[in-house]
Simulated scan of single mutants.
Amino acid sequence: MSKEAQGPLALYDRNIKAKAILFDATKCTACRGCQVACKQWHDLPAEKTKNYGSYQNPPDLTPQTWLVIRFDETKDEHGLPRWLFNRQSCFHCLEPDCVRVCPPEALKRRSDGVVDITPDLCIGCGYCIDACPFGVPKMDPASKKVFKCNFCVDRLDYGLPPACVSSCPTGALEYGERADLLARARARVEQLRAQGFEQADIYGAKRYQTGVLLILPFSPGNYSWLPARPEGNRPIRWWKEVFNPLGSLVMGGAAAAAIIHYVVVGPHRIRKEKNKDSQPKGG
Rank of each mutant, 00 (worst) to 15 (best):
K274T: 00
D13R: 11
V264H: 05
A200R: 09
L44E: 09
W238P: 00
L192A: 10
Y52H: 15
L44F: 15
Y12H: 10
G247C: 05
Y203K: 10
C90S: 12
G266D: 04
N51S: 14
V165Y: 01
C28R: 02
W238C: 04
G159S: 06
T62E: 11
C31R: 08
R234H: 06
T74C: 10
C152A: 03
F151K: 02
R32L: 01
R14D: 01
A187I: 12
P220R: 07
R207T: 13
G53K: 13
Q279D: 01
R155A: 02
L226Q: 14
V250A: 14
P230Y: 12
Q56M: 14
C122Y: 11
H92L: 04
E105T: 08
N150P: 00
G266E: 07
P235V: 03
P81K: 10
M1P: 11
C122D: 11
A183C: 07
P235I: 06
Q56K: 14
Q6K: 12
Q199D: 15
P161Q: 03
L44M: 15
R188S: 04
R82E: 04
C31K: 05
Q195D: 15
A106Y: 10
A10D: 10
N51E: 15
C149T: 02
C122F: 13
K48I: 12
C93T: 01
I236C: 00
Q209I: 04
V263R: 09
C149M: 03
G253F: 08
G176D: 06
G266W: 07
I202V: 15
A183N: 05
L11W: 14
S2K: 13
D97T: 07
A183G: 01
P230G: 10
L182P: 07
K272A: 13
K27T: 01
P217S: 08
G135Y: 09
N244R: 08
A183E: 15
P104D: 10
C38R: 02
